[in-house]
């Protein structure tokens, strides 16, 4: 086999850049938050020297369900997170005794929905361009 000792070349492509630029920051944050939460739970399991199977038994769940929890794709309920907190002795949920600000939240939600609609429209138009490219 021929040996070539050179720095690994960096690469990107117009296709990668076009799709990456079309993704909203909300999507990046949403996925990152889920994965970080899964990682925190996984690290807490390891800190207790438990296997995923042992953790599943403590939670009264099947190991396959725990695998999905830890995959970073799961939408946890508050009840499940509370249960995980109790079993692993960690904090995952934010404090709930702060005063809510419903008007501010409604305004934020309205802006978020408008932004998402705009993003979806742009993505649709981009995908049409990609198909024809």
């Amino acid at each position: 086999m021929m040996k070539t000792k050179t720095k690994i070349p960096e690469y990107t492509s117009p296709l990668i850049e076009q799709i990456y630029e079309g993704i909203s920051q909300n999507t990046f944050d949403f996925v990152a938050n889920r994965m970080q939460l899964a990682l925190r739970i996984s690290e807490a399991i390891k800190a207790k020297n438990w296997s995923q199977k042992q953790f599943a038994e403590m939670m009264g769940k099947r190991p396959s369900e725990v695998s999905r929890w830890l995959s970073g794709t799961h939408n946890f309920t508050t009840d499940t997170l509370w249960h995980i907190e109790q079993v692993l002795d960690i904090r995952l949920l934010a404090e709930t005794n702060q005063e809510s600000t419903p008007i501010f939240e409604a305004d934020r939600l309205r802006k978020f929905v408008l932004q998402e609609v705009n993003n979806a429209l742009e993505k649709y138009l981009s995908s049409r361009k990609l198909v024809s490219a």
Binding site: I19, I23, T27, F28, M35, G72
Partner: peptide
């Protein structure tokens, strides 16, 4: 595809 991009981005930079 966008979800995969976001996942890969998190793998490289966050987790």
């Amino acid at each position: 595809v966008e979800q995969i991009f976001a996942t890969l981005n998190s793998i490289g930079k966050k987790v």
